[in-house]
Design a protein around this nucleic acid. Structure first.
Lengths: 362, 362
DNA sequence: ACACCCTCCGTGTGCGCACACAAAGGTACT
DNA sequence: AGTACCTTTGTGTGCGCACACGGAGGGTGT
């Protein structure tokens, strides 16, 4: 029938085989002192040959250890990508409640200098056993990471990563590839010699996340490689200045009436979608990122053509699972995990909205 | 900090609060007889007010019950969609090994009349506690389902479902929507007035799965609604007759040299892809289903443009998880679960291949 | 010889739960 | 009053494991 149909091997079985007591086996398994070299070798041999796999549930029950996880992500007041990441984490923690796993979430304002470091201090103060971090710039992030490394606290990066650090694991989308893929799709919709406008989001002088930047690079790389005939325009937005933005869009389209394709590499594609709806323009092909509510609405009503999803819920779940696997199961984990790059249109979006498969089941 | 930071509530706590012994609480929880009406009410009240949640791991440890799952899927000798479904199931079962969950897989030849019923008989003979079935036709499937329902054994449908039965749950892709979505993508690549050829797979007289049929219907529905200008051709294939098929393709393209777009609703798009490669035709736009090896190869080499993935591994995992949730956790499960419809191109495929996220972690 | 220490090892207890068994109290009948 | 029997309740044991404790054996010093 199955590979290993004999009942599971217990510590008791190992002890019997090795001719020692369960206490000695226990000491060997946990690397505790007080075992003679000969006993240790004997037990280790039996452990390996019988392929002993501890019953983690019994183990957790007996040890009664508590695991405190902490997480540091951007403050998100309104609907946002991060809401789903957080929901994923909270959901996954529930799964492990009987392992005494708890999660405390800290937030930082990503547009305020020093906010990351301050929140990082609060985080380390609670003495977590494992940490999930959405990194800011390398400079802002450094102090917190150093503190964690000194205390030997494992940390995971989510959403974006920084080369200079060594997280236990990383979960996020490959921004360059996702921009490259977006260009591939855009190119199928753009006639020869056509033009595409890139809408950018400027926040208090700086270009928000570097994810946005990297996606654009990937996008441009595809086009210059495969569709050099396509002309590119740019239009910058300012966050929370709707009237100003509308003026800019008006201005752009009166100057470039032939531009019928556009893309933005942040989650605010709905700004364009809603503009098109207001101006009753059905012909403009628009692409963007993330399934936030207003984007979804535009997509369903035909004013956004495609969105690229990042599976934020899945990312949150995976982060918790990896910390669990590392801390409790003491198993090796994969260091780099790139989330799938998923294309969403009006025709398939319903299968990404209601069915957060993993949060619905289990 | 967290919603419920006080330590978890145990049966002992409930017993104390209710002024009874743990034995009585245990009887109430399991609905066993031998409890007075007054005690029962009292305990039930306390259980609810304290929101008691049993520690499933301790429970599984104590009860030592074995759960035998069985599964009935099509025989798949070579590389196939079903291999991944099976891998997903086997992976998920490992996760639950400490709950004494085991899985036995049975296979049937989907092109042999009566094979399903015979395999179904063998399956019911092992007296499983829960069953996963990839249904054949309603007629072939009926006897096995009746047997399961008589014995009160819960069953899940995977891949496709049949209206006439009442599975505990279903996991699979919405074939109609996926065809509809495929048409959406195809339409971006097809110029006005262009034509598209549908390649069909004929197996010993009949048209394989009804999934194939339904996808085609969805595909046609989109086009007739949004792109009536596109002309449709059809070309039938015969399984395992490569020379005959090649002749047919040759013949088709000499008759319709203007047709530069094609799609197939089964997993054999590589037949066309490899034909194009052999004939050095780079201009033909081809779409298909499933990330089987030969399809992936064609995609990466540019002879297939897009594939639609069904997440077979995920389907397998979900099936096991739902049975676990139902049988062991005794929780409600979602009856219908449509898998996401995922578009794969050369540019994003790597994030769907190596990162079977859930099989790599946990 | 005894006290003392150190190394090595076995046993006992409890984690939260399921379930078997025993005990207590009541009722009905001889 | 004694017996049988039923209902209702409490207690004890073990699931596989972690960990504290104490004991056995050998060595050293006085």
């Amino acid at each position: 029938m199955n590979e290993n149909n004999k009942d599971r091997i217990r510590i008791k079985d190992i002890a019997q085989q090795a001719g020692v007591s369960v206490g000695t086996v226990d000491r060997v398994i946990h690397g505790r002192p007080g075992v003679s070299e000969s006993s240790r070798l004997k037990v280790e041999e039996i452990l390996k040959s019988m392929n002993y796999q501890p019953n983690m549930y019994a183990s957790a029950l007996a040890s009664n250890k508590k695991y405190k996880l902490a997480c540091l992500i951007p403050l998100h007041t309104e609907e946002d990508y991060w809401i789903d990441v957080e929901a994923g984490m909270r959901h996954a923690v529930k799964t492990y409640k009987d392992f005494n796993v708890s999660l405390e979430i800290f937030y930082y304002n990503q547009y305020e200098r020093g906010a990351f470091g301050n929140a990082g201090k609060k985080l380390t103060e609670v003495m977590p056993d494992g940490v999930i971090i959405a990194p800011s710039s390398a400079d802002e992030t450094r102090a917190t990471i150093s503190e964690l490394e000194e205390r030997n606290i494992p940390y995971i990066f989510v959403d974006s990563t920084l080369e200079v650090f060594n997280p236990l694991s990383f979960f996020g989308q490959n921004a360059h590839s996702s921009g490259y893929f977006a260009a591939r799709i855009m190119s199928t919709m753009t006639p020869a010699g056509g033009s595409v406008v890139i809408f950018r989001l400027i926040l208090e002088g700086r270009l928000g996340s570097n994810q946005q930047q990297t996606r654009e690079e990937g996008f441009r790389e595809f086009l210059s490689r495969h569709r050099p005939d396509i002309k590119l325009h740019e239009l910058d937005f300012i966050v929370n200045h709707p009237e100003e933005n509308e003026k800019r869009i008006d201005c752009f389209f009166s100057e470039h009436p032939d531009t019928v394709c556009g893309i933005t590499f942040n989650s605010k594609a709905y700004i364009i979608g809603e503009y098109m709806q207001k101006n009753k323009r059905n012909d403009f092909k628009m692409m963007g990122y993330d399934l936030v509510r207003r984007n979804v609405k535009c997509l369903k009503e035909g004013y956004i053509d495609f969105l690229i999803a990042q599976q934020p819920t899945e990312q949150g779940i995976c982060c918790i699972e990896v910390l669990f696997k590392h801390l409790i199961l003491k198993k090796d984990v994969k260091a780099e995990n790139y989330m799938p790059i998923t294309l969403i249109s009006e025709e398939n979006i319903d299968f990404y909205l209601d069915t957060h498969l993993r949060t619905n089941n289990i």
